Each structure stands twice: as structure tokens, then as C-alpha cells.
Amino acid sequence: MTDAPLLSVLVPAYEYAEGVERILQALEPLSPDVELLIFDDSPAPDMAGLIEAHASRWPDLRYRHNPSALGGPLGAGNNWNALLDAARGRYCLLMHHDEMPLGREFCSRLRAALTDRTAPEVLLLDVVLLDGALRPLRRHVPAWLRWSVVRYAPGYLFRRNVIGPTASLVVRREHFPRFDPSLRWLIDVELYVRLCRAGLRWQRLAGLEVGSIQRSDGTITASLSGELHRIDAAERVALRPRFPRDRLWLGAPVGGALRAVEQVLWLSLRVVERAWTRLVRLKPRS
């Protein structure tokens, strides 16, 4: 392809071929103006067969096994940045192997939104949490809360990641910040805060959904395991000088009382949300 693709779908893979295959199947059939890049940081290149099986149906697919091509794994943040640097599309969507597009019209609706003459620099997609059997559990957070934080209080993301996974954002390539590889736990929300404050045009495409599979293995959370509390605390301290206006949500001691009030409000919101979800499920169809 000589012209730049409309969209680059970027998949950082690590020892979870099942998740990569699920993404491939959910995206097919794909328009020829969409490219797919899979950079595999796994010790062994066990996804090569899977990629070969799908290659004939993808006009623009690139797979790289980092340890074989580069002499060693890159690590999560560097792998994500390598995908962004290699992307050629006008827009980028970074989708991890425990995420997936939802709905048969996902690609066609996304393409229509990106080709509209009023297309924004950042498109915010809805997030649905899924169990291991891919059954919907609930929405990540209410849409009004996500949108309010993005527009008015991005620093709150350091307290609650209400945006969700990276797959919920489609960003014009030249505006997609690079991840800070020195971070492990707050690596995505730190980027989100910078992106929210970059003065870009955002748009929420209601009903266009990505699923986030709530797995206990193969995730960053699982890999950090018992170190999570220590790593989270250390990263918050390190980020305070860079984000002085967000010290409250980064855990500065002076904000303890306000965070306690926020915790009560957050738990109350969750209770109301769960009750509403049960009510809607039990409501008889007319």
C-alpha cells in the first residue's frame, strides 16, 4: 500500500495467543485501509502459526517477535512505544490481548467516524467489562463520569482510571503521546492525563464498545502481584513534581480527608450502579 492507512490497530502481545486470535476474529473482515501490527514480546515466537493462518485475509499485517528480531524483549512500555513509532495510519488504536472489539458493526462504525469531515483528534469508545467466558458484567463506569473527567478534571484519573483500557481511545497518530517506560502501574493514566490536557478535540461515539476481559493471569496487575502497593506508592511520589496540580489525587498527605470523602461517594455510586443494573436486567420486556 502506497497511501497511509486510515487506522493502525496496534497489538502488544505477550504469551496469550488466544487473546490475539480473538482480536483478529473480531476485526474480520477488515477494510484494506486498516493495518494491523502485532509486536510479540513473548520469550518464544509461538504466535507465528496463528499469524500465518490469518495473513491471507489481512491485506496489511505485520508481525514481529521482539526477542528474535531485536535480541531480547522490550518490556511493556517500550513495546507499546515501538508500535506507535512503526504505525503508518492516520489514527491509532492500541489494543492489548485481553481486550477486544464488540459488535459486528465495530469496524464499519469506527471507519465512518474517522472519515467524517468533522472527525476529532481523539475518539472515546465505551468499555464493557467481560468475564472469562466473554459474558458482559457491567460498564466500566457511567458515560457521564468518564466524559466529565476528560473535559473538566483529568487529574482525577490518577485516583480512578475512569477512561479504562488503551483500546477505548482512538487517537490521531501525530497527537498520540509516548508512554513513559519508567512507569509500570500508572503508565496508562499518566499518558491519559497528558492527552486530556493537550488541547485536542475529543468525541464520544456512543454505543461503539470494546470489551475488557477480567482475567487474573497474563495481565500487568497479575505480574506485579504482591509488589503492587509498593510500586503504586513509589510512582505516585515520583509523579508529584511533574503534576503539581494533581497532588491531591496522587496521594499527597494533605489531601487525606478529601480522599476519604471521595471514597465514600465512589462506593455509593457503585452501589447505585449495581442496583440499577439488576433492575434493568429484571425489567420485563414489553
Rank of each mutant, 00 (worst) to 15 (best):
E121N: 04
N78V: 13
L137H: 00
V128R: 04
R104S: 08
D98Q: 04
L93A: 08
A133Y: 06
W80Y: 14
A82P: 03
P120K: 08
P101M: 02
Y91S: 00
L125R: 03
T118V: 00
P59M: 07
D60L: 15
P67D: 08
A86Y: 08
R88I: 04
A76T: 13
L84T: 01
L134N: 11
R88L: 13
V128Q: 13
L123D: 03
D126P: 04
E99V: 00
R90E: 12
L70N: 09
L129C: 15
N66H: 02
P120C: 06
P120F: 04
L125M: 07
H140E: 11
P73Y: 14
A112R: 07
S68W: 07
R139N: 14
L70Q: 09
N81A: 08
A53R: 12
D131P: 07
P59D: 08
S108R: 10
M100E: 13
R139Q: 10
R111W: 05
D85V: 11
T115N: 11
L70V: 04
G77A: 14
G132R: 15
V127S: 03
L134S: 11
D126N: 11
A69P: 10
N79E: 10
A113E: 14
H54T: 09
R104L: 12
L110Q: 06
L74F: 07
P59S: 12
E105I: 00
L130P: 02
H65W: 10
R111S: 12
L94T: 11
C107M: 11
A82Q: 12
A133K: 06
L134K: 10
R109N: 04
T118D: 15
V127P: 02
A69C: 04
G89W: 03
L83W: 03
L74E: 01
H65F: 06
Y91K: 03
G89D: 13
L74V: 01
